[in-house]
Design a protein around this nucleic acid. Structure first.
Length: 194
DNA sequence: TGCCCGATTAACT
DNA sequence: GTTAATCGGGCAA
């Protein structure tokens, strides 16, 4: 009996409400050039949301957000880090999911080297850390998720997803659009009990 | 052109 | 708990 690999997540998966896609990404496997692991934490950003980069309309930076679903939007954070999003909803909706934490499963030595760090719990525990570990840069902005170097597979079986307020924002900070794998030790921050 | 500040992180006290 | 690092985007002028 051979295990059937879970299906690749393609444009169809992302062509839905960002609030449906975000929790469905928890437990999915994200690999970039063979390194990565299981997505354990994300945040949803909707174009009507003042905290979203797309809120004030299209610009050169956020152009990918206004394109079709299933593509990667990468931006520079605090002049230092890269952060990676998956574009959702029909083209023009300008909604995306920020990838905030991954449980490392593939290419761990490579990711450790890129991060210059031995503690596996901190390897991919934060949006900037994920991008450093997976070697994501602006070169990946606008690339399709269903083609190399990306490999994105649906989760297998059920997972327990928890929700909470988003991290590190000042606008619309009360919206509970952060999602995580319950009990995971690879989160960027714990979820408040409740 | 200038200015403010951010979807962060690591290193502090 | 606090804060420096570091710089591009967006907006005012």
């Amino acid at each position: 009996m051979f295990a059937v690999p879970p299906p690749r997540l393609d444009r169809t998966f992302f062509d839905r409400s960002v609030h449906a896609v975000a929790p469905d990404l928890i437990g999915a496997t994200l690999l970039v050039n063979g390194s990565g692991g299981m997505i354990v934490e994300v945040e949803a950003y909707h174009h009507t949301d003042p905290a979203a980069h797309s809120f004030r309309g299209p610009t050169q930076r956020n152009a990918v957000m206004f394109g079709p679903p299933g593509y990667v939007y990468v931006y520079r954070s605090y002049g230092i880090h890269w952060c990676m999003n998956f574009v959702c909803e029909p083209a023009g909706s300008a909604s995306a999911v920020l990838i905030r934490a991954v449980e490392p499963t593939h290419g761990i030595p490579t990711m450790r080297r890129r991060r210059g760090l031995s503690d596996i719990r901190l390897l991919c525990a934060g949006p900037g850390r994920v991008c450093e570990a997976l070697a994501i840069t602006s070169a990946h902005n606008g690339l399709a998720l269903d083609r190399p170097p990306f490999e994105l597979r649906a989760r297998q079986g059920d997972v327990e997803v928890v929700a909470g307020v988003r991290i590190g924002i000042t606008k619309a900070a009360e919206l509970p659009w952060r999602y995580g794998l319950k009990g995971s030790r690879f989160l960027s921050k714990p979820f408040r009990a409740g």
